[in-house]
Nucleic acid binder design. Sequence first.
DNA 1: ACATGCGGGACTGCCCGTTCAT
DNA 2: ATGAACGGGCAGTCCCGCATGT
Lengths: 196, 196, 196, 196
Amino acid sequence: VSLRERKKARTRASIREHALRLFREQGYQATTVEQIAQAAEVSPSTFFRYFPTKEDLVLRDDMETRALAAFERQPPELSTIGAIRTALHETLASYTQEEMAQIRELAMLITVPEVRARAIDELARAIHAMAAAVAQRSGRPADDLAVRTITGAVAGVIMSVTMPWEPRTQEGWHLSDQSFGQVDEALALLETGLTL
Amino acid sequence: VSLRERKKARTRASIREHALRLFREQGYQATTVEQIAQAAEVSPSTFFRYFPTKEDLVLRDDMETRALAAFERQPPELSTIGAIRTALHETLASYTQEEMAQIRELAMLITVPEVRARAIDELARAIHAMAAAVAQRSGRPADDLAVRTITGAVAGVIMSVTMPWEPRTQEGWHLSDQSFGQVDEALALLETGLTL
Amino acid sequence: VSLRERKKARTRASIREHALRLFREQGYQATTVEQIAQAAEVSPSTFFRYFPTKEDLVLRDDMETRALAAFERQPPELSTIGAIRTALHETLASYTQEEMAQIRELAMLITVPEVRARAIDELARAIHAMAAAVAQRSGRPADDLAVRTITGAVAGVIMSVTMPWEPRTQEGWHLSDQSFGQVDEALALLETGLTL
Amino acid sequence: VSLRERKKARTRASIREHALRLFREQGYQATTVEQIAQAAEVSPSTFFRYFPTKEDLVLRDDMETRALAAFERQPPELSTIGAIRTALHETLASYTQEEMAQIRELAMLITVPEVRARAIDELARAIHAMAAAVAQRSGRPADDLAVRTITGAVAGVIMSVTMPWEPRTQEGWHLSDQSFGQVDEALALLETGLTL
DNA sequence: ACATGCGGGACTGCCCGTTCAT
DNA sequence: ATGAACGGGCAGTCCCGCATGT
């Protein structure tokens, strides 16, 4: 880890922290990139070198990567959905207190339409990546319909349970601890069979 | 239907047609709102009165509304997913040849990232609307977990089957006739149970 | 002439005047568009609506248009070059004192490389427009070699005589009154024959 | 020729080749310096050390230098324009097949406005350099009007004959073999006298 | 009512000067 | 000491909302 790398990481963190503070104080939309750059003492162009878009301030985390890695570690005896559930548990457990706090803070911002659209898109993309893993695990081709169905369903369930559906204000919604519990429960339901 | 309404509809259609032509010729991103406005012989501000954002040129259709209405017409004997499947069939059948052609053309544009993010978001929103209908149909509360699970799963499956996952060029992807068939099949799978 | 038009013209003039003042005070390159916009009390985007590029502040004048019109007014007895010389005289005579002063001030800025490259390009384009007029006048096709040769030569002579060739500072060069005299003389030479 | 020099020349050639390929594939404007640098496996800053601006990828060749040298080799019996014509012939003849092919490819890019403006400016500058040679050859002062006139006229004629005047697409224009023939013919006309 | 004009903000691309790594 | 990385700055484009004028 060279000095250069360290500095980059620090700059990146600094930009994000200042941004989050400003979002808290003024709201997401009311905060301009220029303000963030000024607060973090970098130029706007530098800002965009670290975060391609303003939305990426909120989105870039590695939860999907971690979850995928955890999934691939699961023993083959588990059913697909079972493996996914365990993987999610492990992923959550891997976060420190502070990381969870930041995730919770970032999560509040998905009430902003653009952020939310991007977030869903990322989720979709991530689950598609997981489809490959599922395919391999079950010895089926990557574009197998059952594989696409199961991964799609999982993504949809996560979306449906965690996203704030009614248009609430930024303050009115938060990612509760029980959200994860609900996701788990919903995935269990999905596996049991959706008889309604 | 007043004369005013007629004129509005014509303007709206004209803007959309000119836009689609320009998208075909130059691509979505390369076409500016100003060009579209000029081609349709309206001012840019008028454009925005008809379509709140450029993306809405592609997104605004009433498929979700029609599907929801069809769902509510289904007899209570059908299972939830069965009713959804039938509703989708009826919705598709309700389109004329020309409408289908336009839908297909619009569908090509979801390869554009912004459009795609918005499209998924709309799908999510639409399915949430359907959750209410499902809840009522089954006599459960609106925020019932089973209801959210089933509707989320349906949305996820539709997404997973119809969206172009690999980053393909605009030309390389199209909404095939069999896409609908695959959605139907996948929903059948979902109902049967996802044992993988 | 509506109120709107009036206002536009005033804004345009105001921007240019403030820009010229700033150029005088700080130099062309050291003056940013933002400064100009601020001085003229408009937003940067408005600036670009009036002048597509910073260079256009300097370039947009109608000398070429006037010269072309004057050329077309010349009687057919005159030789081509003779007609051009007369047209240039008439064009110059048509400017008021103030206009000449502004032209002179703008002319100083062609010492700036980008401006100069653009200026030559405009000259080239203008002379090409004149080729059409010459062709018509002499009853030859537009792409006749003699026509292209004569108009090209005229453009080249004007360039050669009026442009500041050695890289001089902005202060060291100015468009003198005798520049026009020299152009006239050079065109006379061109007509007589270039025996060297 | 040291090893260092060799390496530099290779890097330079490599950058240019990758750039030309990308220009062919995506167009000049759509290709960014960063893409070129990446393709040539150098950093952007290295790119700018080899080519001060993106335009210089297209412009930097030594045709003017060669032509000037050839001009200075001409015997004093020849008229000025005669000497220039011979010099141009010799210069052309000095290029290999591959060099000509590259020149032709580069020439296509002068349809791009910025490139074209720069190209004309370079031509102007080159011809001004030639003015000094003409002055010396004829024993006149460097700023002699006849000298400036004749060199300016030659530059203008070359411009007029070789440049694509109508706004054509990149594909629609190319530097034909007969362009050189036309230049020669036009210069002959210039010498004979421009009676039109 | 409707269009036009203007403001503003995100974002891109070119280019340069300085700092760090080899 | 040579070269790459990095940050800064500025021109320019586009989307879109709001005020202003017709």
